[in-house]
Nucleic acid binder design. Structure first.
Length: 494
RNA sequence: GUCCCCAUCGUCUAGUCUGGUCCAGGACACCAGCCUUUCACGCUGGCGACAGGGGUUCGAAUCCCCUUGGGGACGCCA
């Protein structure tokens, strides 16, 4: 099993799953599933005081909702602190790391000064060449120290063959001795990460390009620890329209997977969309089933350049990236109706307008309602907003419908109740028959059919758009149609 | 300041490795038309890009160099 594919997703607990993190998780998951490998979930909870039950649960909830399952874990980095420390001791003992007694303040000011002077910013190696006597003196006085990795003083450089970027190399001289253990003896990310990946026998590290510069330092660690170096693949980052990293701080809830769950998005639509950010199959396909994605996916088709999450805060028409909306709508409109019904049930229940009959004697009616209306919908929320009139009488009327299709034609205030009377007398309340009645009515009033018909749309559905009105008449049913048409006056009264 | 990476329509991208079939293809968005009681769907059409400059070559989006632009990193954060 030496060639077993083992990948990992190592989020730090933040209370929510970031869409960038979700994308990383998805690609790792795809790679694991595609190669019959294992996905390991590891919570990187070192340092952060924010590592709480809730913040960890937020990550797990997000993954569960997306349908990303893992094979091992969650492991917690802090459970392996002793192992991390042992690795540091091993390096220290082997002369591959050294104690550094420089104070944080001194280093900070040096770094600050270098930044300001636009000089090279790196550790100057002050403690690298301390004599045993000097070290003994520091220790005798109880001077706190950190452990730094001793970057080899060789010619040439370290490098690796990135599966996305190609060959990446860096000169040893460009890498300064980095800290691997804090002065409070807590090991740092760079070390922990490597020790954990070695223990978990990770074969492929698929992560964001923001980790690219860590890689060479980590390879040095692998070598010093005598462990095989995994294969790396650095995926492009997701930026905002100003090419800045997307973050909850500057973009709000829109960057968290939970937001999409709470706003009527379908998990697979989300997965599909996120995959397309920085990857393509090489043909024109954009909609992928899980099976198709598992077949089509490959690391070498991941893009090198960063992708932009096309979200414009000030555009009310698009609550998020329009492509995501399109993909969500696609699945909403084509997915299995029964499955859709289960999802819509939750929305109706949350809105307080669910009725048990929708699963009983009105089941067929309910399913047909969804099928009729989903053609125009983008998210599950639309069923309880634009589609509310199908399930409840207390719907709002959209302003354009009110203005353009009702108030503009004052005569509708009399006409619609009159039409209600005709419809009440109908024996066969079908689309064909209602159309006939409606058209005859318009002709009689010497007006365009669209005027009474769209007036009906407003009064019956509250919308300016929707399915064919004749189908609406039939499906909504005579009783409701007549009742609402008779109440036309209330809209004028408002 | 130093190092690393990247660069095709507004956005996601195909094409780049293996130059010619690309005066650059698809999708989203946008615009127009058709359809229609409305909107949507659908269909048809339109708008719209190889960052700039050098080179190599018979020929460059594709190879090389420079410039510019963007991103990342340089932490006792992860």
């Amino acid at each position: 099993m030496a060639n077993e594919v083992r990948v990992r997703f190592p989020p730090s607990p933040t209370g929510y799953l970031h869409i960038g993190g979700a994308r990383t998780a998805i690609l790792n998951w795809l790679y694991a599933r595609q190669h019959n490998g294992k996905l390991i979930l590891r919570i990187e909870d070192t340092d952060t005081g924010r590592s709480t039950e809730e913040s960890i649960q937020g990550i797990i909830d997000g993954l569960n909702w997306l349908g990303i399952d893992w094979d091992e874990g969650p492991y917690f980095q802090t459970d392996f602190t002793a192992e991390h420390q042992a690795a540091a001791q091993k390096l220290l003992a082997a002369g591959k790391a050294y104690k550094c007694f420089c104070t944080k303040e001194a280093l900070d000011s040096k770094r600050e000064a270098a930044m300001v002077a636009k000089q090279e910013v790196r550790y100057d190696g002050t403690c690298r060449h301390l004599t045993p006597e000097e070290i003994a003196t520091f220790e005798a006085t109880g001077t706190p120290s950190v452990v730094r990795f001793k970057v080899p003083e060789r010619q040439g450089g370290v490098g690796y063959d990135d599966q996305v970027l190609g060959r990446i190399e860096q000169q040893y001289s460009e890498i300064s001795d980095f800290v691997i253990v804090r002065s409070n003896s807590k090991p740092l990310y760079l070390l922990c990460n490597v020790v954990d990946d070695i223990r978990d026998r990770i074969s492929h590290i698929i992560r964001g390009q923001d980790h690219k510069d860590n890689t060479n330092r980590q390879i040095l660690l692998y070598e010093a620890l005598g462990a095989p170096v995994p294969i790396f693949a650095h995926m492009p980052l997701t930026l905002d329209t100003k090419r800045a990293k997307i973050s909850k701080r500057s973009h709000g809830e829109i960057v968290s997977v939970q937001w999409y769950r709470d706003h009527g998005f379908l998990p697979w639509a989300m997965v599909n969309f996120l995959c397309l950010l920085g990857w393509s199959a090489g043909d024109d396909r954009e909609i992928f089933s899980k099976e198709e994605l598992l077949t089509a996916f490959s690391l070498d088709r991941i893009n090198k350049s960063n992708a932009i999450f096309n979200y414009k805060k000030d555009d009310p028409k698009f609550i998020t990236d329009p492509k995501l909306l399109t993909i969500n709508a696609h699945y909403l409109r084509t997915m299995d109706l029964e499955e859709l019904a289960r999802l819509v049930k939750k929305e109706l229940a949350a809105a307080g307008i669910w009725q048990a009959a929708y699963e009983g004697e009105q089941r067929e009616w309910f399913l047909k309602t969804l099928d009729m209306t989903r053609e125009r919908f983008y998210t599950l929320k639309d069923f309880v907003t634009q589609g509310r009139a199908w399930f409840a009488d207390d719907f709002e009327m959209c302003p354009q419908a009110l203005k353009k299709n009702l108030l503009k034609h004052a005569e509708l205030q009399e006409w619609l109740p009159e039409l209600a009377g005709r419809m009440a007398a109908m024996a066969n309340f079908t689309a064909e028959e209602t159309e006939k009645v409606a058209r005859d009515f318009a002709e009689e009033k010497q007006t365009k059919p669209g005027i009474p018909i769209n007036g009906c749309r407003a009064v019956l559905t509250g919308q300016i758009k929707g399915p064919s009105m004749f189908e609406v008449f039939e499906h909504l049913g005579k009783e409701t149609v007549v009742r609402r048409l008779r109440e036309t006056g209330k809209w004028f009264a408002k």
